Amino acid sequence: MHLAYPAVLSVLLFSVGLYGVLARRNAILVLMSVELMLNSVNLNLVAFDVWLRDALHAGQAFTLFIIAIAAAEIGIGLAIVLMVYRNRGSSDVDRLRDTAEAPDGTPDDTGATSPAQQTQKAEATA
């Protein structure tokens, strides 16, 4: 097998994943794009492992580690996205800013405009 075919496919998959991370606003679609990028790296590692005829099969071993890390990342990432969706009603990446960092400088629920003021107000009420 020629090395150019899986390498070109890997570049295309990585490019689609990178576009998804940069252009999408939904957190679940961003996570899916990150997974697509990780899978393109896995394809590249296995293709180079076969091409180099490595006796230790290091590319395949790294691929297994990346799959394990990707599974943990998806589990934790989906848990975070679900909690954010339950609390805020949206999984839009642009709207995930803390209320203390409001772009127009309006106060949040506690009436304080900065995190330091929120801490002072919380200590005063406690």
Rank of each mutant, 00 (worst) to 15 (best):
H2A: 13
H2M: 12
Y5M: 09
Y5I: 15
P6C: 09
S10K: 06
L13E: 08
V16H: 07
L18H: 09
G20F: 10
A23Y: 08
R24S: 14
N26M: 02
I28E: 14
I28Q: 11
I28P: 02
L29A: 14
L29V: 08
V30R: 15
L31F: 10
V34C: 13
L38Q: 07
S40C: 01
L43P: 00
L45E: 00
L45F: 05
L45G: 01
V46N: 00
A47Q: 01
F48L: 14
V50I: 14
W51Q: 12
L52E: 12
A55R: 11
A55N: 03
A55Q: 12
A55F: 05
A55L: 11
L56W: 10
H57L: 10
A58L: 15
A58Y: 11
Q60D: 06
T63N: 12
L64D: 03
I67D: 02
I67N: 07
I69K: 00
A70N: 12
A72P: 04
I74G: 07
I74H: 05
A79L: 14
V81Q: 03
L82Q: 08
L82H: 07
V84I: 12
Y85S: 06
N87P: 00
G89T: 08
S91P: 02
D94T: 11
L96Q: 15
R97D: 10
D98F: 11
E101Y: 14
E101K: 00
G105N: 06
S114G: 04
Q117W: 00
T119M: 13
K121I: 01
E123G: 01
T125N: 06
